[in-house]
Structures are given as C-alpha cells and as structure tokens.
Design a protein around this nucleic acid. Sequence first.
DNA 1: AGCAACATGAGAATGATTGTCAACTCGGCA
DNA 2: TGCCGAGTTGACAATCATTCTCATGTTGCT
Lengths: 131, 131
Amino acid sequence: MTSTDRQPLRPTRQRIAVTEALASFDDFRSAQEIHDLLDRRGAKVGLATVYRTLQRLSESHEVDMLRTEDGEAVYRRCSDTHHHHLVCRECGATVEIEGPAVERWTNAMAAEHGFADVSHTLEIFGTCPRH
Amino acid sequence: MTSTDRQPLRPTRQRIAVTEALASFDDFRSAQEIHDLLDRRGAKVGLATVYRTLQRLSESHEVDMLRTEDGEAVYRRCSDTHHHHLVCRECGATVEIEGPAVERWTNAMAAEHGFADVSHTLEIFGTCPRH
DNA sequence: AGCAACATGAGAATGATTGTCAACTCGGCA
DNA sequence: TGCCGAGTTGACAATCATTCTCATGTTGCT
C-alpha cells in the first residue's frame, strides 16, 4: 500500500472554514472560487492554505477532486463510498453514481494485462435536463 | 453536434515532423517532451507550434490526450476507434482497451438522469508487469 | 508555562499553456 | 508564371493555476 496516510488534520479555524464552505455548495469548484467564497463570507484564509487544505482533504478522500477539460482542479464534498460523477457541462450540477460492474471491469482489465496497484478515473459529462 | 470540425490541416513541414515524432513512441508524452524529441532530431519546430498541432490533432481524434495526475496534458497516437487506456504509472507503458459494456453503462446512466450530449473519460492506472 | 511539530500567510517562483504579431508559405487562379 | 488571401509559424511576452519559502502564529501535550 502506498502510504497516503498522514497525521490527522488539526481542526484549525481555517480548515473548519474550508470545510464549511465545501458544505455550502453541490457542484465542483476550483480552489480559487472557494477562496473567493470564503473571502465574501469574511473568513480570512490565505489562498495557499485553501490549496493545501483541499489537497489534504482529497488525499484522505473527504472531498472529490477532478480536472476540468482544461486541466484545472475542482473540488466537491463527497460521500465516503467509491463513486463516480455525472457532471453538467453547463451548470456544474453533479450526480454521484456507482457502478459495481465498472469496478469489476477495470479490475479485470488490469489483471488481464498484469497490472498491479490499480486505480482509475471515470467521469461522465453532459448537459443536464435544465439545459 | 458541437462543431469540432475545421479545415483540414495543411501538411506543413512542422506538422509532418510532429506526426512522425508521434509515430516513434508508444507512451503518453507531454508537448514539451515531444518538442525536445524534435529538437534532438534536428527538426526545427517552435514550441508553440507543437502545442497548436497537438491540440488540433487531438480535437480531430488523431491523437489521444489525457491528463496526468498533476494536470499536465500528454499525447499519444491512437487508433481510430473509441477506446480507453491502461497506463503504467512507472514507465508510461500503455494498453488500449475497449469496453462496449462500459460505453453502454455510461450512456444508460446519463439517460437515466436526463443528460444529453454525453461524453466521458475513463483511464486506468497501475504498475505494469515489468515493475 | 514551555516545547516541538504543525500551520499559516504574503509574496515570490515555477511551469505549463496561450496570446501577439510580423514574417512566411500554401493553394489556387488570372 | 506571378500574385493574393487565408492559413502558419516562431520568438517571446503574458497568463494563470499551483507550489514554494520562510518568518511568524498555533496546537497538543506534559
């Protein structure tokens, strides 16, 4: 197992603020957007801290992180089970989806070619009913 | 259909060089790496041109483009059918894989939630047998 | 209280990618 | 063959997200 684990995060004012911000929206947002949100709320949190916090949270799977088509990292709070996303290209609306069959398939493919330590990324993009 | 199409590319010396470079390796490489490769070969092609060419080629699906975990775009020549990749985290070795079942599944999921214009990304990472 | 490890913020630094724009090339066509 | 407009190119500046630095706060514990 590749050691992804670290010490538990200290519940500092800043980290709490970031977590609360994450709880206030449902779509994927960039670190900068979250930083702006905090600013507007009056929470003084440095941009670097927002980046660091989101990074740690995504490493521990407390938030989902994915990359937009132009490579920007965006974050969103998430449930604790492994899942994927159906994301609206227009408004960012997101639906978490699970697919045991897909998980099985990726593992089978990897096994078939002798790959170990397998992980995968799967995101579905489209335009939601409202668009 | 979102107009992804453009005029056919003119077969300039530079574009030919990039295409040839792409034919010379099997793994995913960044625009900068490809530029270096061209340099070493003595082909004088500007970095911006390499970026522009790769972009056009990937838009027309003549090359695959995916993002590494840190968001960098990497390219690789590809077959003309829709497919995904099994990529070695260590050496970049890549296996193209197809999964009709997955395609069906993503479409079904999108349909179920009323999403239109669906596309998806799916990449599998692991360490290949040689590592 | 007192210490060591962990966190933070401001700003500089990095690095990939894109924009700018004058010079150049290509593919017709008169 | 010579000319023209659209498409291309290259050198370099400009963006922009993200990371690094490091001096200064905080936290958890004893």
